[in-house]
């Protein structure tokens, strides 16, 4: 049996490695299951993968679930400022009632999770540090995700949308004063050449994005028991690897930025709370308004300790 897995990342990316690991282990299990990976958007544009997945035209993908927030508003909770504090907290999230609810919503679209995983990110400013909401007033900012845009706007920043690949030039020419993106993007786009101060994901971080390896449920059900078992076993190993590597990426970004002479400013617990208050009045509020059972889902997510 051949399964097709599409994703948008390059082959050096941790998310590709997670997919590759599942594919390799399944192949090694010798259960007549072959996972063919199409990396770097070679099959579908980045944001156009959930639809074919749910309609069975694609078997597997690794993607930020919030990309499908337009189809299932509840998914927007998987990229919400301040819901998750650090990677261990994120791992506890995966076993929570909240995640069960999200998975039951996926099941409506005929989608299931094989590997849970989060990546974290931080903020960087061209001329000054961005660690508390007071810092962003009057700045031109690029944020990753709509909930972050809403929160930053609430804090007095202005939002310019652009692809992460454009941040470097935009900062260089002065279109942007600051940006929020993932730890790995900060490094791979060499933003340390442009910024003065970096606020990484540390003991507390605002930006966590849920990026699971998903599979079409019918495709999974069509497999025989040995194949399903091999897939589950490989996924469990990949999930452990994913968590470790995600932590390493944050540390690696701090190392690279420090080496480049960029000032590192950790976010304090008080600043985290101030951001969360800001988010409560902006992104949380608009999420609850737009989503059926929004308040209940939000409370469930906030209740995970």
């Amino acid at each position: 049996t051949e399964l097709r897995l599409s994703h948008q990342w390059s082959t050096n990316d941790i998310r590709h490695k997670v997919a590759q690991m599942v594919a390799d282990e399944v192949a090694a299990a010798d259960v007549d299951l072959d996972i063919k990976i199409f990396p770097s958007k070679s099959l579908f544009p980045a944001t156009e993968q959930y639809k074919p997945l749910s309609r069975g035209q694609l078997d597997m993908t690794v993607l930020p679930l919030s990309y499908a927030g337009g189809q299932q508003p509840a998914y927007n909770l998987t990229l919400m400022p301040g819901l998750i504090k650090n990677h261990d907290h994120a791992a506890r999230m995966n076993d929570s009632e909240f995640m069960q609810r999200i998975e039951s919503i996926m099941a409506e679209d005929d989608v299931m999770v094989l590997v849970h995983g989060y990546l974290a990110g931080g903020f960087a400013g061209k001329d000054k540090c961005i660690s508390s909401p007071d810092d962003v007033a009057g700045m031109q900012l690029r944020a990753a995700g709509k909930a972050f845009e809403q929160m930053l706007a609430k804090a007095g920043g202005s939002i310019a949308s652009m692809a992460s690949s454009e941040i470097y030039t935009a900062m260089q020419t002065g279109v942007l004063d600051g940006a929020n993106t993932s730890s790995s993007s900060f490094v791979s786009y060499r933003l340390y050449e442009q910024v003065k101060c970096y606020t990484p994901a540390g003991d507390v971080a605002l930006w966590f994005m849920y990026q699971p390896l998903l599979m079409n449920k019918d495709a999974f059900d069509d497999l025989n028991e040995a194949q399903q078992e091999a897939l589950r076993a490989a996924s469990a190993n990949a999930q452990a690897y994913y968590l470790e590597e995600a932590k390493k990426e944050d540390a690696e970004s701090v190392r690279v930025f420090t080496e480049a002479g960029v000032e590192i400013k950790q976010m304090s617990a008080e600043e985290f709370d101030a951001w969360r208050a800001m988010a409560t009045e902006s992104s949380y509020k608009s999420f609850v308004e737009d989503t059926p059972d929004g308040q209940e889902l939000l409370d469930l997510a906030l209740s995970v300790q």
């Binding site: 944001t47 919030s66 990309y67 499908a68 927030g69 337009g70 189809q71 508003p73 709509k146 845009e149 809403q150 939002i159 949308s161 737009d290």
Partner: peptide, 10 residues
């Protein structure tokens, strides 16, 4: 299904 685009404006 009432799909919306995944942006603030949506």
């Amino acid at each position: 299904k009432g799909w919306r685009s995944e942006t603030v404006w949506g």
